[in-house]
Design a protein around this nucleic acid. Structure first.
Lengths: 357, 357
DNA sequence: GTGAAAGCGCTAACAT
DNA sequence: ATGTTAGCGCTTTCAC
């Protein structure tokens, strides 16, 4: 009878147990309150939440009723501390403004949800320092897995990750030395494919359109592939134009002007991302430049709009959703203690030739 | 001397304190390890992390060194439990695939970050049941504030929110009875404005294009405004066409076909969202339908692409980023205990007339 | 199937 | 400016 003491102490006043002090505490209903209401122990309530089948049907019903009566909401923070399992997986994307990242994040969340995991998203804005801070914050929240977009880690970030012992999946790219696991496509190969396609179509004067984000190694790899192949094809180095902001399409007309005053005629442009490519094609339409007659355009990503604009955009398709899905499956395997046989998964790419080339 | 017991027990072996058992624990470096290394108390290390200026410069340097030496990463989970402050704000959006939600989320995060808050994003997919589950999960993580997109809450969700006592900001819409606070624009008014604009331009045969998501009360309000004003203008009820999926632009050509076989000629279409409007305009371009000569189009959102497509889209502009910024500021005010003078903030809208009308 | 005890790693409150 | 103590609310371990 542990309540005896409180009852005895409060004897005269008849008040409920005046504990030593009550300045802490959230004021929330606790598992113990539910337990009391259901006339079971707190353990049983805890079991009920984690695995309802583990308690008898009758107890379950009583607990269920008690939960409703008290308005109890599980404290996952306390649970995470006690069990050392946060049930959170973090995913870092360069920017949520680019819808190209929606599919993988969605797919990741869809794979993880049935297993009870929630996905925490962070935007690095292509800044490795921001990425580092986010990784540290996520590690502080004791996430159980981290999915990275690209492989442009700072050495100290890689070190942090390695020390933490948290499963990490790098996506989109195929690093030679992954921090842990990776799933993606060959970006350099994509650049090469585009260069060859341009060449096969008869174009000889190339330009590349990229954004200024130095942390974007995926774009850099595509560019490297494209430029390298141009050289192998015996062409002059592509004229290079940079966006200052990755997603600001309103710059497209200005960019087009720079392309037209390159000092030499340009007949084909490779854009490192679909937003750039779409912006360029639309800007051409506005300024009366005929695509692909006056200028051919190819991009990367195969976003939804690529096929819809006129002329439809030639672009490299990568299985974006699968990046997220596979990343989630790899993490799940790790969580379950299953060994991941293939630490680097190449999901390939495909050049979708449409009307802009 | 609490260690005495352990020492006595392990007397002969002479081993370091063999505690009763050591099966729990994360194996991570703890604050106490850092404290020992820096020859200070754990409390001082804790203070150093939360407010470096609170410890002397010399101790700070020692702690800093100790943190590096041990590779310590703060356990924010334990911190959140002890302080009852998670420093997390949750934001719910219908879908991250629609880039229209990127700006407010970004702005919210930008306002909150300097104050030490992180933003947790969840997608409801326009499903109130999913929204409910997410709210419950977030509440379980003891988030300190919740930002909602739209006002289509289930009654039980509203109840859950009310009970939790967490500050809530509903965005995009202006509910008559907000759960707590709200910042948005008058969606019905936007629909009315579009109807009047169509009418003023001489169009008389209206249609509306929406997606099927029943949980989207924002779209519903726009539609209601548009339809109501059509009636007031003495016009026939607009012909209505629905997308099955909110963001699947590939359906646009099919939709266009349905519009053309409406049984009566349609000369102006109001699309509840920009993605729909852009898809429609592009589909018209593909099928040779002249916009606005054969069909006028207006939408809602003023996304980046709206001004870039040809013809440029007439659409309603709302200060999306400001929705997030103001929501963040309201939350911050609450956190600081400041009273929020204005619980409902109307940020207005503007019809941007371009070439599609 | 259920309960009792111990403690996860940190911070609030109270000292000094 | 720094140290000591007592939890935060849950889950693990062990016992029945």
């Amino acid at each position: 009878m542990p309540d005896e003491r409180g009852a005895a102490m409060a004897g005269k006043a008849g008040d409920p147990a005046p504990r030593v002090r009550r300045s802490r505490g959230s004021g929330h209903v606790r598992i113990e309150d539910v337990a009391r209401e259901a006339a079971v122990s707190a353990q049983t309530v805890s079991r009920f939440f984690r695995n309802p089948g583990q308690v008898s049907a009758e107890t379950a019903a009583r607990i269920d009723r008690a939960v409703r009566a008290t308005g109890y909401v599980r404290n996952l923070v306390a649970g995470a501390l006690a069990s050392n399992r946060s049930r959170i997986v973090a995913v870092l994307v360069p920017t949520i403004a680019n819808p190209i990242h929606a599919a993988p994040v969605q797919a990741l969340a869809d794979v993880l949800r049935p297993e009870g995991y929630q996905v925490l998203v962070g935007s690095t804005n292509y800044d490795p320092a921001v990425e580092h801070d986010l990784v540290e914050a996520f590690l502080g929240r004791r996430v159980e897995g981290i999915v990275l977009t690209g492989t442009s880690l700072l050495p100290e970030t890689a070190h942090l990750l390695a020390r933490a012992g948290v499963p990490v999946v790098q996506t989109w790219e195929l690093p030679k030395c992954p921090v842990d696991m990776a799933v993606g496509s060959d970006n350099e190969g994509a650049g090469i494919a585009v260069a060859r396609h341009f060449f096969a179509r008869g174009y000889r004067n190339f330009a590349v359109l990229s954004h200024g984000a130095s942390g974007d190694t995926r774009s850099a790899a595509r560019l490297a592939g494209f430029i390298g192949e141009s050289a192998r094809l015996g062409l002059a180095p592509p004229f290079s134009v940079s966006f200052t902001r990755a997603t600001d399409l309103s710059q497209a007309p200005d960019l087009l002007a720079r392309l037209r005053h390159a000092g030499r005629p340009i007949d084909a442009v490779f854009c490192v991302g679909d937003p750039l490519g779409i912006g360029l094609v639309l800007a051409c339409g506005r300024s009366g430049l005929r695509v692909p007659l006056d200028l051919a355009v190819a991009a990367f990503g195969d976003s939804e709009l690529a096929a819809l604009i006129t002329p439809a955009l030639t672009t490299v398709r990568v299985p974006r959703a699968d990046f997220g899905r596979v990343a989630g499956e790899m993490l799940l395997a790790r969580f379950a203690g299953r060994p991941v046989e293939q630490r680097i998964v190449d999901l390939g790419f495909r050049l979708i030739v449409r009307e802009t080339t």
